[in-house]
């Protein structure tokens, strides 16, 4: 076709301004702590956090594990909970969107459970599972299921009704319409769910680990509080943010590749 690819330069301000803002933010933070405006017992300076980061790469003291082990534990819990919430929430949401029976049965229970924050389940999960991985996976799963169900449900409900009629004129059965029309139509919303559910899972992971854990990034934060080490608290926070951002970026790339055909 008569399309030529043209390289468009990103405006210089969009490259320089983010660098400037990040640089200013960290310098100000460092200065506030170094000059003693905020005492170092209340907030750790970036330099202290970096120093601790380098130490924690190899030293399991004082909290019992090196940083990689914490990140690995958290990542494993979050990943299992996340996958389980996708495996359960997406099919349920999709089916609720198309089949009246499923909607009628599942909706009231879902609406009752949905407003309860997953963190509120922590005491019960400690009764049930102790402080092992199962309890945390359960909390993470609860947090991830809700956006999965809602997005998949809405995605199916938003299927163009004329397309459904069109499929009917071609003799498609209910199940064929669901599989070949509603699910592809819902895909953009489903991919939105992958992102939102990940955030929910990750947030609930930290919540769960703050209260019931013996390892993990959330545990690192709570140990930092107990040992009165603000640099450890901040390090834990930074790691949670960084790992979450990396996973989010990976999912976005995946979505771009899978949905290439649908983009207009």
């Amino acid at each position: 076709m008569a399309y030529e690819s043209v390289k468009v330069e990103k405006p210089l301000s969009l490259i320089l301004l983010p660098i400037l803002s990040v640089f200013t933010f960290f310098s100000a933070w460092e200065l506030i702590v170094d000059t003693g405006i905020v005492p170092s017992t209340m907030l750790a300076a970036p330099s202290a956090v970096i120093k601790l980061f380098l130490i924690k790469l190899t030293d399991p003291n004082p909290d019992g594990a090196i940083l990689a082990a914490h990140a690995w534990t958290s990542g494993k819990e979050a990943f299992i909970g996340y996958l389980l919430s996708l495996a359960f929430g997406l099919p349920l949401g999709l089916l609720m969107g198309w089949f009246t029976v499923v909607r009628g049965l599942a909706r009231p229970i879902f609406e009752l459970i949905r407003p309860i924050p997953p963190i509120a389940w922590i005491p019960l999960t400690i009764f049930w599972f102790g402080i092992g991985i199962e309890g945390k996976v359960f909390i993470i799963w609860l947090g991830g299921v809700v956006p999965c169900v809602i997005n998949a449900f809405v995605g199916v409900r938003m299927t163009n009704p004329t397309l459904i009629q069109m499929a009917r004129t071609y003799g498609a059965s209910d199940w064929q319409i669901f599989v070949q029309l509603c699910i592809p139509s819902a895909l953009p919303m489903v991919f939105g769910a992958l992102q939102i559910a990940l955030v929910c899972c990750w947030v609930n992971l930290v919540g769960a680990e703050l209260l019931a854990a013996d390892q993990g990034l959330g545990y690192l934060i709570s140990m930092g509080r107990r040992l009165a080490l603000p640099d450890m608290v901040v390090l834990g926070m930074v790691c949670v943010g960084f790992v979450g951002a990396v996973i989010g970026y990976a999912i976005e790339r995946l979505e771009c590749r899978l949905l290439a055909g649908i983009r207009r």
Binding site: N160, L163, M166, T169, L181, P184, G261, I262
Partner: peptide, 12 residues
């Protein structure tokens, strides 16, 4: 066989 004004093709 029905042909719609708004095409109604499967985009995917």
């Amino acid at each position: 066989g029905l042909v719609f004004q708004s095409y109604m093709l499967f985009a995917w």
